[in-house]
Amino acid sequence: MIHIDPWEKTWVYIVGLLIVVMLGSILYTAFANSIHPPSNVETIDSASLHLSKEFAEDNLGVKTRADGSVTVTMVAARYGFYPQRIEVPANTPIRFRIASLDVVHGLHIPETNLATMVIPGFVSEVNTTIPKPGEYPLFCNEYCGLGHHYMWSRVTVTPDTTTN
């Protein structure tokens, strides 16, 4: 017969109750506020990403749309972001569209609110504006393999010239 101390038993119940309350509150808020992954749900075949129209090699990079806003099309692959360097204007709506060629990556630009997971099979889309011009690093924040810590690139945010 295993001996269980009465205090042990009490704490097992308390911890069990805490877990149920915590999980319950997460599930409740998720359903009640309909919280879901922030990006749009759009599928793509990662194995043939380079043969797709949008993520073809010469279609990557920064494009300015007719309304002055900017679209950045990028690929995350072990171990880098392609194109390696991008330049975007400050105070301008930017739409990032990113897809992974291989495994789960993350994309994060410090000091901005740009952070997203890049999941193979899906297109990650983030809309943002970067208020402050300057040089920013852009790096992977989801462990993706032995070269994860080399996976970074440079973003130059140029002063906005259209709203002077």
């Binding site: 072990r78 171990y79 393999g145 032995l146 070269g147 080399y150």
Partner: peptide
């Protein structure tokens, strides 16, 4: 120089 370690891949 954005060169990953060769051994990583």
């Amino acid at each position: 120089r954005l060169i990953p370690a060769c051994a990583a891949c």
